[in-house]
Structures are given as structure tokens and as C-alpha cells.
């Protein structure tokens, strides 16, 4: 069961990562996009960040380990994984 974890609050990152398995992915949205400035190198999971929320916060120095996506790709990701978990 592949899960897409959606994180919107940067302070919840460590707890969220504990729940993530190898085949899962992490998508940063809203305030959590600030995390994308660094390479978190975790279990080789796929890393995504919502471009619109990065632009809204003036962040243009993201680490190359993060794939920047739009809402259309966000929708595709939710379908590419068996389920999504929004980590609140």
C-alpha cells in the first residue's frame, strides 16, 4: 500500500517521517514548503513540493532533491498512490 503523505505544517515533519515507509512519498504544501530548502535524505522516498506555495512565500532556493509540482500534478499524485494521508 503506497501512501502519499501531505504535510502543511513544517513543525510536524519529524513525526510525519516516522510514519513514512520506503515506497511512500512526501508532498509539502502551504507553510511546510519551507522544508524544501534542504535535502532531508530519508529512506529514498520521493519528495515533492507545491510550486505555487513556494512562490507565495518567496522561496526560490529549493534543494534539487525536491520535485516542484503544480495542482494538476498534485491531483495526479493522489491517483498514483493508493491513498493520501494529510498529516495535521
Amino acid at each position: 500500500m503506497k501512501t502519499l503523505f501531505i504535510l502543511n505544517n513544517p513543525t510536524n515533519l519529524s513525526a510525519c517521517l516516522e510514519a513514512i515507509a520506503k515506497e511512500d512519498a512526501l508532498l509539502l504544501i502551504e507553510d511546510a514548503v519551507i522544508i524544501a530548502r534542504k535535502n532531508i535524505e530519508y529512506k529514498h522516498i520521493s519528495l515533492f513540493a507545491l510550486k505555487e506555495d513556494l512562490i507565495a512565500r518567496g522561496i526560490n532556493n529549493t534543494d534539487a532533491s525536491w520535485e516542484l509540482i503544480n495542482y494538476g500534478k498534485f491531483v495526479e499524485l493522489t491517483l498514483a498512490f493508493d491513498k493520501s494521508v494529510t498529516w495535521l
Binding site: 501531505i6 502543511n8 493522489t78 491517483l79 491513498k83 493520501s84 494521508v85 494529510t86 495535521l88
Partner: peptide
């Protein structure tokens, strides 16, 4: 639904 997505 095929997918439920939560926004909080």
C-alpha cells in the same frame, strides 16, 4: 470515491 483528500 476512488480518493478522499483531506485539507486541514
Amino acid at each position: 470515491s476512488d480518493r478522499l483528500v483531506t485539507f486541514g
